[in-house]
């Protein structure tokens, strides 16, 4: 349940990024377009990393539960 609400929170965060991108002169949009757009790469890498780490955390929790049951 907790994890689902955290995932939902992430989802809502990304919806707001989408809204910010609509604003041509907005803070996030200009940041993402500055410096040869390297920030876009950083965002992609961090998202992949976040996905992998979230997967590890979930595995860890599942194994902890199994250990408790035994």
């Amino acid at each position: 349940m907790k994890i689902k609400s955290i995932l939902l929170l992430f989802l809502f965060c990304f919806i707001s990024i989408n809204l910010l991108a609509q604003d041509e002169n907005g803070g996030m949009a200009s940041l993402m377009r500055s410096n040869g757009r390297i920030y876009v790469v950083v965002a992609v890498v961090l998202l992949i990393l976040a996905g992998l780490i979230l997967y590890l955390v979930r595995l860890d929790k599942k194994i902890s539960k199994l250990e408790k049951d035994n």
Partner: peptide
């Protein structure tokens, strides 16, 4: 093996690597 502080340290350091590694 069951403590979480070093896992959090690892995650924070890798996230730092992936940001500072591209931006510095």
């Amino acid at each position: 093996m069951y403590k979480s502080w070093w896992k959090i340290t690892g995650v924070v350091l890798v996230i730092y690597t992936c940001t500072a590694g591209f931006l510095l």
